[in-house]
Design a protein around this nucleic acid. Structure first.
Lengths: 255, 255
DNA sequence: CTCCCTATTTACTCCGACATATTCCGAGCG
DNA sequence: CGCTCGGAATATGTCGGAGTAAATAGGGAG
């Protein structure tokens, strides 16, 4: 009955909140600190975070707080602890890289170019297929959400946070219209990567193209129920984004 | 303060030691219990797990153990706790459904048919594209791993756990050959779903086709570097699997 | 009578000490 | 010389209490 009220986790009120803080709770802050340290390579797989007591003492927190932070990292597959053996960083393939929080840690410092490429490749695979499904399954509410996101994108530009949020909303609405939970979960991961790269491109003064017409083409195809057209239009969109990103990053290595 | 040196003594000595059972640790067991309860729908989104103390008392464990279990669930996006408000189950779209542990909880009881369909749809999207990339990027070691998995599949059948493991190895080798971390993470999720459904189909006496030739076709195309052929062969494979699953599930009168 | 401000209550958060279990390492024995 | 047993070290599990933030209730003003 109070279903409309459980959304507040991080005070979504004003634009003053910058990009999901390090964690309001203490153990959240510790987890953030350790997580970024691991993702940035400061602790390599196989390394040992020696000494529960030593670490807690160095961070000036109690063992409980440190323990709960380790619990979070363990849940995300970053570390594993065994009695006497200590807490060691697991190999990369055990990491839950699609976890939104892990993704945030990965983008907190200087993210690995290869990893960003991976995410965009995943996006290039998933989003056209999602657009195809959305064209077949969307209903009126889905289209309404997409249209609203489009108008918001027109009003603000991609240089503002509001504009990027509208962009995310548009793609999210498409994922939502696929009626596929597994796909929907990917939106957070992809959205984070896209968001970061758009900001990156903006810093690099490399936002020449107007993305609106491409988005409109996708919308039109989905609204018309044209599955193949929607997939193709989305393909164009992600290909352009991939190309832009590649040039902005200074990767001369074309495919 | 980086103690990154005195590490690799027994690092690769034991390949897979931890993370076996549902939870050897106490808080792991609690998390498993609560996780399956949430995934099975016993606790719906918006519900409140009232009372840290009450719950800890009911489960006959200390508050710390319960708290660490809650911490795990929080890390996976299943719940969120706030002072005074209690610990409430988050809406489904916040759940980290691709987390291997969450997936395990989802398949612990009677998994939601819609969710299984979602996973197979995701697989049908991702795996052909992965096969295409693998055909372009595989090296000798990748091909060797695939070949070994294939011979193992021939020796055992899909009715045995060893055979299913070989199947997973084959698909995993393809994902590995894409050189894409983001795709690789999905293998665990997809593998779990596929594994469950093969067992399900076996129980329903619905394993008519010999899957080996289809797998061989995929292997040949990847080995030949034929990107389009690999994608198409994999497409056939997943389509057949999807069809089999659909028919097997269409008959609730299986066992 | 309605609205807003304050106070109380409630439940999470953090803490440090204690008890237990497991592992590593070395001493003693066959 | 190799094996086994026992002690030491370290991580896990437990406990109760102090602190803090938030929601609800109650009182006062308009």
């Amino acid at each position: 009955m109070s279903e409309a009220n459980f959304v507040n986790e991080e005070e979504s009120a004003r634009p003053a909140d910058e990009a999901r803080g390090p964690g309001r709770r203490l153990h959240g802050a510790i987890a953030h600190k350790l997580g970024t340290a691991i993702l940035s390579g400061k602790y390599a797989p196989g390394d040992i975070l020696s000494g529960e007591v030593a670490f807690a003492e160095e961070l000036q927190v109690s063992r409980s707080a440190y323990r709960e932070a380790i619990q979070v990292l363990t849940a995300k597959g970053l570390v594993a602890s065994r009695p006497k053996a200590g807490t060691r960083v697991l190999p990369r393939d055990r990491w839950n890289l699609l976890d939104p929080e892990v993704l945030g840690w990965a983008f907190a410092g200087e993210p690995d170019i290869e990893f960003v490429r991976s995410l965009f490749e995943l996006r290039a695979i998933v989003e056209p297929a999602a657009a195809r499904l959305a064209a077949q399954r969307r209903d009126k509410d889905d289209l309404k959400a997409m249209k609203e996101a489009l108008t918001a994108m027109r009003r603000h530009t991609l240089t503002t946070e509001a504009g990027r949020a509208a962009d995310r909303d548009f793609h999210n609405a498409i994922l939502q219209a696929t009626r596929n939970d597994a796909l929907l979960v990917l939106s957070a991961s992809i959205g984070a990567a896209v968001n970061w790269t758009t900001q990156f491109k903006q810093r690099a003064r490399a936002l020449p193209r107007n993305p609106i017409p491409d988005h409109v083409r996708v919308y039109d195809a989905i609204a018309a129920g044209d599955a193949a057209g929607a997939a193709e239009a989305m393909n164009v969109l992600v290909d352009l984004a991939l190309e832009d990103t590649r040039t902005a990053m200074g990767q001369p290595d074309g495919v």
